[in-house]
Design a protein around this nucleic acid. Structure first.
Lengths: 98, 98
DNA sequence: TGGCTATTTGGCAAAATAGCCAAGCGCCTT
DNA sequence: AAGGCGCTTGGCTATTTTGCCAAATAGCCA
């Protein structure tokens, strides 16, 4: 069943959320964050990109409101803010595999 | 509640879905398609962009598997394929408004 | 056939994005 | 204080995306 969706609305903010998630590395990091917060160093190992690139990716996600971060000593920990990511990702994969 | 998300997986395809949805005009058209299929001409009036631009936007969505299309006479009708869009959009808006 | 309509495609310029390296910042340890 | 570590920021280039116009395609109707 489809829900009621408003057409006459500003979709800028929501589009930013989608855009933020529209990158394989960012999506993989979000998947990892699904099981709890992670430091940048772990996420960097996961995606195998330059640390600075990872940092910028995370900043995109943070700006869009998908994740939040906290500092602890030298480390920065990122956490998922959008709790429905997993469900939607599952739905996408189910649809794609049809 | 978060679902189990696999980390070691190819997120290229899913990322393409998000990327496709990551544009205000495309998101607005998807919102419209939430209440049933529409011809390109209607969607064009909705977003107010050049017809050719709208056509390209729709082709992005179709390529990603978010919508499908059928031809009938002069018209092309587009339909939503990803049924969870509405739910996710609602979740995003709820999260953004916190 | 010819003209009209709806849509798609090609091509282009402007803007946005992704990746790296180098440099900077703040905290920690010595 | 000095150096190391984790992370972020600045800057650059290469690539991708967006939007328009113009042209092509295809169906409908007189």
């Amino acid at each position: 069943m489809l829900q009621e969706i408003e057409v006459n609305k500003n979709y800028e903010r929501s589009a930013d959320v989608f855009k933020a998630m529209g990158h394989p590395a960012r999506l993989r990091m979000l998947a990892a964050l699904g099981s709890g917060e992670q430091c940048v160093c772990e996420l960097q190992k996961l995606v195998g990109l330059d640390m600075s690139t990872v940092s910028k990716h995370l900043s995109v996600l943070k700006h869009a409101g998908v994740v939040s971060s906290r500092k602890e000593g030298n480390w920065a920990y990122y956490r998922l803010e959008l709790e429905c990511v997993g469900r939607f990702l599952t739905c996408i994969e189910r649809t794609l595999s049809e």
